[in-house]
Design a protein around this nucleic acid. Structure first.
Lengths: 147, 147
DNA sequence: CGTTAATCTGAAGTTAGGTTTATATATCGA
DNA sequence: TCGATATATAAACCTAACTTCAGATTAACG
């Protein structure tokens, strides 16, 4: 499978694929007689795993370490398990942050939609929080509760 | 309030605070006679908003635009509302990605915990997916269902 | 008042994750 | 086989978001 084909399938640019190969994220990509890369299904699977780990917030250098472990076989099973356990924590942490950000954004959406109706911020910015409608007050309290 | 104090409160480094000021993310930070910054509660509130928008995945240059709009008053209310609506979509998209990544990670945790018990990948890597325990099969199917 | 600690500025350096460019080969359809 | 594409490499370039550095000034303490 040629690099342009893999690019289309994965959505990664050709230069990114070459970059990943060069930096050891794909192991032993086959080459034709002439030297052009010949990707296999296994390479596609690896690219999928890389994409997932990237989406989970992992850095390429750490993904590379993981890929190396995969090459090394059974002796690295425990390390790989530990890595996924660690990464699960990271993802859950990121999700918490996003959830908080989402609440702030939703509160602000309400706030500015009120201002839009009024044509000015004057009223809304002076409202006492305990006069917010119930669902908004709930958001507001979650945003401002201490950790 | 001195820069070192703000640094402690926000957790941002002193150089980051100066960087934000220089790049227009904070408006009109007051200065003492001698020229040292004198942060106000309003600056702290702005830093909080910046932190939130950053956590939601927004870039500093876009946050700067938003901060400028805030300075400009009522004429930018609709723009600000539109920005939060857009940002809500972005956050929801990010959360979807994280949720997918989390499923893959949890599947892999199970996979490698099995391998760890066995001491080898030999058995687990050859199991047919429809022999996975029910909860794992559910994960597996969600991971592999097409979009 | 002196000195130690904190702050200031502009400019250069850093890291991650690519992209672009220049130049050279390879492969493919007619 | 020719000409048009595709691919290869190394090296330079790029952006975001900071950090570090050098040199100067200011503020705080005893």
């Amino acid at each position: 499978m040629q690099i342009s084909e893999v690019s289309k399938i994965t959505g990664l640019s050709i230069s990114t694929l070459r970059y990943y190969d060069k930096h050891g994220l794909l192991q032993n990509v086959q080459r034709t007689e002439g030297g052009t890369r010949d990707f296999s299904q296994r390479d596609l699977d690896n690219l999928n795993m890389i994409e997932c780990l990237k989406n989970s917030g992992m850095q390429l250098k750490d993904i590379r370490v993981f890929m190396d472990w995969c090459e090394q076989g059974d002796s690295t099973i425990e390390k790989r398990l530990a890595m996924f356990e660690e990464q699960e924590k990271n993802v859950l942490g990121e999700m918490k942050k996003l959830e908080h950000a989402l609440k702030v954004i939703q509160f602000k959406k309400w706030y500015y939609s009120q201002a839009k109706e009024d044509g000015t911020l004057d009223r809304i910015k002076n409202i006492d929080p305990n006069q917010y409608p119930e669902s908004i007050a709930a958001l507001y309290n979650e945003i401002h509760k201490e950790k």
